[in-house]
Amino acid sequence: MISPERLTAAVRERLPLVGPLVPVERSGAWSRAFTASALVDGTEAPVVVRVGSHLDDFAKDALASGWECPQLPVPPAYAIFPVDDEFAMVTGRRYGVFLEDLDASAWGRALPHVFDAVDALRAVPLVAAAPADVDTGGLDLPFDPAIVGVTRPWREWLTDLQDDPSARGGGWAPRLAGSPTGDHSFHAGLEFLHGLVDGVEPPRSFVHSDLLHGNVLAAADGSRIEAIFDWGCLFAGDYLYDIAWLDFWAPWHPGLAAHDVPALARQRFAGSDPQAGLFDVRLRACAVHIGLCHLAYFAFVDNPAQIAATDRRLAQYDGRAGS
């Protein structure tokens, strides 16, 4: 693991730091984060420095930084560079309350702004290229369209859930099979998903696919979204995936659970969605996929309690407990 001293020296080669790097308590699953101040274009500004092994995650962050607009407040990306056998990325820092920590009334004010962000993503061209002002340190960023699924049919992308022990997060299948919950519902859910999306090919757009879990900052009263970051799960799919994400995880977050997210989203997007008649089927397919992926993920991190909780939630979408 890179020492703070080594990381500090590497950052200072790209940006003049003002003061030390301070570890962030709530870092991501695949990277470590630090905060600092740096001189950006001659002005002192707060920044976040993240370090991890997966360059493609940082490449997606750089890509998304070029989409910043009032509805989609993505922090600017300043630099991506190698540090020993890992990579580091420097972005602007933003402040606010994590979206999932809002109470019910604040969530009521925030949801329209979240929908605006999803709508802004729908308008982004499906082109993968980092903004020219991001210092990539000579790295060849992995912008093969395949990394975001642009070249794959939607049904194929959704149902390709095989365990690859050599891939990130791989080796989950035997752990899931050996968990107290077992893997029967995973295989049954995958079979259900195959039938559910047969013949369904929605318009594709970029999807964040992790609009919770410390990746979105909002005003404390929910009156605006302050920042959307950590785009490592970005892919090209049905925009309803981001809506299904909120709906699937709502029971984990009481403030969000107080709202009927699908009903509100159906009302918000009915006039602009050319396949609005398939809204319920598409949302359900996305939710089933989210459940299956997280049975695998929680098996990978050896969390039997979350495997069981995810399995119960999945049952509400895949026919075992009704629709």
Rank of each mutant, 00 (worst) to 15 (best):
A62C: 13
A315P: 00
L102W: 06
A299C: 11
D280W: 08
R204E: 12
A132S: 14
V288K: 03
I290Y: 03
D260V: 04
Q316M: 07
G291V: 04
T136S: 14
A79Q: 07
L55C: 01
D133M: 11
A250T: 03
R32D: 07
S65R: 02
D103E: 14
G42W: 05
G92C: 08
C69D: 10
T159N: 09
V24M: 05
A263N: 10
D247C: 05
A36R: 05
W157I: 00
I225N: 08
L99P: 12
A250H: 02
A220N: 08
G138S: 13
D238T: 12
V197S: 10
V301S: 02
A120C: 07
W172K: 09
D230E: 08
W231N: 09
D57Q: 05
V148I: 15
P254H: 03
Q316V: 00
R168Y: 12
Q267N: 13
R155E: 15
G255Q: 02
H253T: 04
V207A: 09
W154K: 07
D242E: 11
I80R: 05
G255N: 01
P202K: 08
G149L: 10
T151S: 14
L55E: 01
D85L: 08
A263K: 11
P251W: 05
F115G: 05
L283Y: 09
H294R: 12
N215C: 13
F279K: 10
V11D: 09
P23W: 01
A308I: 04
F186K: 09
W30C: 10
R50F: 02
A321H: 04
R313A: 08
D133W: 14
G232D: 13
R50S: 08
F269D: 01
A227T: 03
A177F: 05
G291M: 06
T151K: 10
D260I: 03
H113D: 06
L139Q: 11
D57R: 02
V114K: 04
Y241H: 14
A45H: 06
S37D: 12
G42N: 07
H54E: 14
A128P: 03
Y239M: 13
Y239H: 14
L234S: 11
P46G: 07
R93C: 07
G42M: 06
T35P: 00
F300V: 05
P75E: 07
R109T: 07
L292F: 06
H289Q: 13
A33E: 05
T151Y: 00
A77W: 04
A167W: 14
V124D: 07
I2W: 04
L7G: 02
R282S: 09
Q71I: 00
G137V: 14
A220Y: 04
C233K: 14
W154Y: 15
G66T: 01
V301I: 15
L196I: 07
F192A: 14
R14Q: 15
